[in-house]
Amino acid sequence: MRIGELAAQTGMTRDTIRFYEKAGLVTGRRLPNGYRDFPPETVVWLQYVRTAQTLGFSLAEIARHGAELRDAPDSAQALSALFEEKIRIVDVRMAELAALRAELTARVGIGCPLQADRAS
């Protein structure tokens, strides 16, 4: 399938697909006329990529785990393990943000601490 048809079926732009190709997320072969040709299963894979991004996975994470998920005998189990790891990462980030929020809240109304240090 050519890139235009792939774009139409996935709702992505040709530029996005080219970017994903450059990043190694999809592979299309070149036809003699120079056009890209993608296998039909690329549609499902790109939908997976979009869903994974929505769930907070980076393109690097998707690329890193994509092959293992496609080849996993029980992909639901493999996905669950990735989701659990992502939840741990989110929990750590939430704790960091809560600490940052507390620090900022404590500083509200006290002025700029950098100016106070300069006056010393």
Score class of each variant (00 low, 15 high):
Leu69Tyr: 01
Glu41Pro: 03
Pro113Ser: 01
Thr105Phe: 04
Tyr35Leu: 13
Val108Asp: 10
Val90Ser: 05
Ile62Ser: 02
Gly28Lys: 14
Ala102Phe: 02
Trp45Ile: 01
Leu25Asn: 08
Leu79Lys: 04
Ile110Arg: 15
Glu21Asn: 11
Gln53Pro: 06
Pro32Arg: 13
Thr27Pro: 06
Leu104Ser: 12
Thr54Asn: 05
Val92Asp: 09
Ser75Leu: 02
Leu104Asp: 06
Phe38Lys: 07
Val43Thr: 06
Gly24Glu: 12
Ala23Gly: 04
Trp45Leu: 00
Leu69Gln: 08
Arg70Phe: 03
Ile110Val: 03
Asp71Thr: 13
Ala67His: 10
Ile17Cys: 05
Ala95Arg: 15
Ala67Pro: 04
Pro113Leu: 00
Thr16Gly: 11
Met1Thr: 15
Arg101Asp: 03
Lys22Thr: 15
Gln77Glu: 08
Thr105Gln: 12
Thr54Met: 07
Asp37Val: 05
Arg107Gln: 14
Ser58Ile: 05
Leu79Trp: 04
Leu69Thr: 06
Ala99Asn: 12
Glu96Ile: 08
Leu46Thr: 14
Gln53Ile: 05
Met94Asn: 10
Glu5Asp: 14
Val49Thr: 06
Tyr20Pro: 08
Arg29Tyr: 09
Phe57Pro: 00
Glu61Cys: 07
Asp117Trp: 03
Phe19Ser: 09
Leu114Pro: 00
Pro113Asn: 01
Phe19Tyr: 13
Arg88Glu: 14
Thr16Phe: 04
Ile110Ala: 07
Thr10His: 07
Val49Tyr: 04
Thr10Val: 15
Met1Trp: 07
Val108Leu: 14
Ile62Gln: 06
Ala67Met: 07
Arg14His: 10
Met94Leu: 14
Thr51Met: 11
Thr105Leu: 10
Ala23Gln: 14
Leu100Tyr: 01
Gln77Cys: 00
Thr10Arg: 13
Gln77Trp: 03
Gln9Gly: 11
Val49Asp: 10
Glu96Gly: 05
Val108Gln: 15
Ala106Glu: 09
Ile17Val: 09
Leu114Ile: 08
Ala95Lys: 15
Asp91Ile: 06
Ala95Leu: 06
Ala99Arg: 15
Cys112Ser: 12
Ala63Val: 03
Cys112Asp: 14
Gly66Met: 00
Tyr48Ser: 14
Ala119Arg: 14
Ile110Asn: 11
Arg18Pro: 02
Leu6Ile: 10
Leu69Trp: 01
Leu31Gln: 09
Thr51Ile: 07
Leu97Ala: 07
Arg88Ser: 13
Asp37Tyr: 07
